[in-house]
Amino acid sequence: MTKQLNLLAVFGLALVLAGCTAPEPISPAASSPKAAAEPTSGSDYAIPDVAAECVDGTVTVVDDSSNVTIDGDCENVVIEASNSMVTVTGSVVNLSFESSITLVTAPAVEHVTFVEGANGNKVATPSVPVVDDGGEGNVVSAE
């Protein structure tokens, strides 16, 4: 029985040592720096331009990843679109955000509301609106 255990131990040691071979040398071609990938020209994606219309004193912006223009005054502007840029050419009484990462530019805004979960938005207006912020990282500035 001792002879069998010795044979098993030698066989096991041989298997372990077989797995511990010296690494193969690296060829000079494999260690040379690779050329950078060819730069690609601009993306084929174009940000869509969207015109939104204020109807009966309200407009709801729903176009994600877009440049949206609202011509004239609008009492209520509701932003449901994320990752967009919205330009209002007139005055806004109530501007509310129900989305994230959107920039709204307007010459005058009276009241801004960011609901819970509306994060990372920005309002650029020279006016000083009343702000209710239930989100995080939102900014209202005179830019």
Rank of each mutant, 00 (worst) to 15 (best):
S141P: 06
V128Y: 13
T125P: 08
A46Y: 02
D44F: 02
E75P: 02
F97M: 11
A9Q: 05
G57A: 07
D49C: 03
L17F: 15
G19T: 15
N83Q: 15
G12F: 06
V59M: 03
A18R: 03
A9K: 06
E24N: 01
L7M: 05
S100Y: 09
A9C: 00
G137E: 14
G135S: 03
F114M: 08
C74R: 06
V92L: 06
A52Y: 00
M1S: 07
L103E: 06
D63Q: 13
V59W: 03
A14M: 04
F114R: 02
E98M: 10
S99H: 13
P129S: 07
D64Q: 14
K34W: 10
P126D: 10
T69P: 10
L95G: 07
E98Q: 11
D132K: 03
V77A: 00
A22G: 08
P25Q: 14
A35E: 14
T113G: 04
D64L: 07
G134C: 05
V86P: 00
T69N: 06
S96T: 02
T60D: 08
D73Q: 05
G120R: 05
V62F: 01
D133V: 04
G90Q: 04
A37M: 03
S91D: 15
G19S: 15
S31I: 04
L103W: 06
G42H: 01
S96I: 09
M1F: 08
K122V: 13
L17Y: 06
G117S: 02
I26R: 14
G137C: 09
D133C: 12
V128L: 14
N121L: 08
V16F: 09
G134S: 03
L5F: 08
I70Q: 04
A29T: 12
K3Q: 11
V123Y: 04
S84H: 13
A35S: 05
A106P: 11
A29S: 15
L17T: 11
S141I: 01
I79C: 12
D44H: 01
F114S: 03
P25A: 06
V123R: 05
A14V: 04
N6L: 10
A29N: 10
D133W: 14
N119P: 15
T58R: 11
L95M: 14
V109M: 11
S127I: 07
V77M: 01
P107C: 01
D132H: 10
A36C: 11
A106T: 12
V128F: 14
T58M: 10
T89V: 08
V78C: 08
A14H: 00
G72S: 14
A51S: 08
P28I: 13
C20M: 07
N6G: 13
N67S: 05
S141K: 12
V140K: 04
E116M: 08
L95E: 15
V131G: 00
G12T: 08
D49W: 02
V104Q: 09
A118W: 12
M1T: 05
E116T: 13
L17G: 13
A9T: 00
A81P: 09
V93G: 04
I79D: 07
I79E: 12
D73G: 02
T60I: 15
S27N: 08
S99G: 10
G135W: 12
A51L: 03
S65I: 05
S27Q: 11
F11Q: 04
D132A: 09
T58F: 03
L17R: 12
V62T: 15
V140N: 05
